[in-house]
Nucleic acid binder design. Structure first.
Lengths: 213, 213
DNA sequence: ATATGTGAATTGATTCACAGCG
DNA sequence: CGCTGTGAATCAATTCACATAT
């Protein structure tokens, strides 16, 4: 268990999603082969990914949906709830803030911030937009763990600096920017422009494609 | 050049972004080391990534910013323009449709679609929302290459099927869903909920982190 | 009988060290 | 002399094959 591939974590998230659907459909049993089909990976891969964390199945029988789902939620840290704040209340920030069922995933949006005085004071998704200067206080008082960056490219590093100073533990970065943060802060990029450019490449070079992250 | 790692393509996109900034700042020369710093990778990695596609530098001197930028745009297929259509005109779809400077990247949004009759007919970002049934005609008439899926999870596979039937060549999938498409169609996932869950894992297991995709 | 769990083999990606060129 | 370009070496991830458990 000393080192787990990043790709494994991404796939665990996918398996969890599939198990959640299966559970909602009332299906009780599954197998590495079924999960592999749904996740578009090999059954070997599913078993190896799970093996990094333990043994969750029954030989000859497969996996019990609720059990495996519970284990994956525990592994991914989704049995507790996480508090988040969003920096950048333009259209993208608003869309993210309104994302339905945030709470259903145990992510609680507890703060919305911007530097633009015209945006400060507005109501968005039940939150009053505050100035970024308030970030350290709000992060402390509300116990915010995660920051979302939804500002334009030029402002992304400043937003990251502000979030790090305020004390968040991780950042979900929607800006098309490689941000520089202390190594103990984890950053997950969510960069749709980059995805669009990769798409351009792969449409023109279909033969050079193996697998998608 | 027979096979190029997916991660290389992602990094080329990053290098291009950095070069674009350098060019905007009027900087004419750079080096693998400088690019590596900005992109948070090693200089070896930069040179190896470029080597998959040719030789773009001058030994002893480094790279010429405008030249390397032009070459990367060519490699990634960004010297032509791409036409896109978006399926799902909820908040996320609207936010994406309004994304500033879409055109600046030579991506042209030429159609907006939904199945909800209440949304059909509305104006969004200069486009009239059309029913998904119109997709095949519009894709054909407007020469649309790329489809964006911004519908909820439950509708994602149907949206993908509609886009594939209409004849798009690639899909940018914002839904939290592994969609099933013919293998010649490339799909790029842009899944922020998955990013959020990975973040949860890495905040709880900081020791298990190596690199971020 | 059947499907998991896992060491070994293979494949792929990154790092290295230095040859090659300006 | 400096920095790129690249084969060789290392390191990591995936695939395989089968022993193992029910």
């Amino acid at each position: 268990m000393s080192t787990v591939p990043t790709a494994t974590i991404s796939r665990l998230v996918t398996y969890l999603r599939i198990l959640t659907q299966l559970e909602a459909q009332g299906i009780k049993k599954t197998s590495s082969e079924h999960l592999a089909d749904e996740a578009q990976v090999s059954a070997f891969q599913v078993r190896k990914d799970l093996a990094y964390f333990g043994r969750f199945g029954t030989r000859g029988a497969g996996y019990t949906v609720p059990t495996l789902r519970r284990e994956l939620r525990r592994i991914l840290g989704l049995t507790r709830s996480w508090s988040a704040a969003i920096v950048g209340m333009g259209r993208l920030g608003e869309a993210i803030a309104h994302y339905p069922n945030f709470g259903a995933y145990d992510f609680l949006l507890k703060g919305a911030f911007d530097i633009d005085p015209h945006k400060v004071g507005r109501e968005v998704a039940g939150l009053t937009v505050q100035h970024v200067d308030e970030l350290p206080r709000v992060v402390r008082e509300k116990g915010i763990d995660i920051g979302f960056i939804t500002v334009p490219h030029e402002a992304a590093q400043d937003a990251a600096d502000a979030l790090v100073r305020a004390g968040v533990k991780g950042i979900l970065n929607f800006a098309p920017t490689v941000i520089d943060v202390p190594k103990e802060i984890h950053v997950e990029p969510v960069d749709f422009l980059a995805g669009l450019k990769r798409l351009s490449f792969y449409i023109l070079n279909p033969q050079l494609r193996e697998e998608v992250a």
